[in-house]
């Protein structure tokens, strides 16, 4: 892939890029379908029941059936809703989710874009989805949606800051914002991966990431029991499916990002396990993080909005800054000196 990116842009090359994009879209959609299926299964098992098992063998076609149902539903737009914004919001939410996938490296040679500021690109684009959620909440002309949208804006902004600062430690250690290089630089043994030297950063990152994803315990914007689905309460049919798609594509993106930043990307945990291709390791680590997210959802209650803000600004942000200072001190004293 890297070689193709270096060539001049002809129609043929553009077509190849476009096709690769479509392939990635297909893979991501496949991931979303089966992530939803596995979420329901895993949470079901944790709750001493089996999840879907009727539609298709072992219930594997359940999500397909659900998506089909959503597609053929009536497209209702509330009469007093702001039509243009109402239609814009789901699309605006989804596009950045897909766009950030461009910078994720899967192995040394399998990547889509090799941007020197890959991490910054990721963080910047994921902020656009916040705007889309607020727009969705506002344009629905519904007080519950508005409350959900406002909560979401406050939450996402508050947790964006610790998320970014917690990664600064990794960037300092690696010396680059390029995700491919960060993945490369992590060593061959699992204790050399970034999550141990940067343990504080890792913990802060995981917490802030769950909050960015609007998942339990931070799922206030769509708190079912209080706000009756929050910002997407008025959306039905495929527009609603778009919001769900956005959430799961972000799960994919954050899991991939965590794998690359902290868990060694495509490196094996020990050099003698090198015979297993890097992509398999990537997928394994990726799956563990996704499973962890599902596990959290089954277990934790929801945090309250003011406690959420307090936690983000008063606990996570100071910890992240502390991490940066400690990393800086360490680098100054032991590496440079």
């Amino acid at each position: 892939m890297g070689t193709w990116l270096d060539e001049t842009l002809t129609w043929g090359n553009a077509l190849i890029f476009f096709l690769w994009g479509v392939i990635l879209l297909a893979i991501v959609l496949g991931f979303v379908t089966y992530a939803i299926y596995f979420e329901r299964k895993v949470i079901g098992w944790m709750q001493l029941r089996i999840g879907p098992n009727r539609v298709g063998p072992l219930g594997l076609l359940q999500t397909v059936a659900d998506i089909l149902k959503l597609l053929i539903k009536e497209d209702t737009i509330p009469r007093k809703a702001d039509r243009m914004l109402f239609i814009l919001a789901p699309a605006l939410a989804y596009v950045p989710a897909f766009a950030v996938l461009a910078v994720i490296p899967y192995t040394q040679d399998l990547y889509f874009a090799d941007i020197n500021v890959g991490l910054l690109y990721y963080v910047a684009l994921s902020g656009i989805s916040t705007i889309a959620i607020v727009i969705g909440g506002w344009s629905s002309n519904n007080k519950y949606a508005l409350l959900g949208g406002m909560r979401s804006a406050a939450q996402m902004i508050s947790y964006e800051v610790p998320l970014v600062i917690s990664v600064v430690g990794v960037v300092m250690m690696t010396g680059s914002l390029n995700l491919r290089i960060i993945g490369e630089q992590q060593g061959n043994w699992f204790w050399e991966w970034n999550f141990l030297p940067q343990i504080i950063g890792f913990v802060v990152f995981i917490i802030a990431a769950v909050s960015e994803l609007n998942r339990t315990p931070f799922d206030l914007p769509e708190a079912e029991s209080e706000l009756v689905a929050g910002y997407h309460v008025e959306y039905s049919g495929f527009r609603f499916a778009f919001f769900m798609l956005t959430e799961y594509v972000y799960v994919y993106a954050i899991a991939a990002l965590t794998t690359v930043l902290f868990l060694g990307g495509w490196h094996a945990p020990a050099p003698f396990l090198d015979f297993v291709p890097g992509i398999i390791w990537f997928l394994l680590k990726f799956s563990c993080i996704v499973f962890f997210l599902f596990w959290l959802r089954a277990t934790m209650p929801r945090i309250r909005v003011d406690q959420l803000m307090g936690f983000g600004w008063k606990v996570l942000l100071p910890l992240a800054i502390l991490n940066v200072f400690i990393t800086a001190l360490y680098l100054e004293l032991f590496i440079k000196g």
Binding site: Q47, P217, S225, R302, I303
Partner: peptide, 13 residues
């Protein structure tokens, strides 16, 4: 009560 607070699993138990 726990379902209202956000934890889904105790409801099923």
């Amino acid at each position: 009560y726990l379902l209202d607070i956000g934890a889904m699993s105790p409801f099923l138990y």
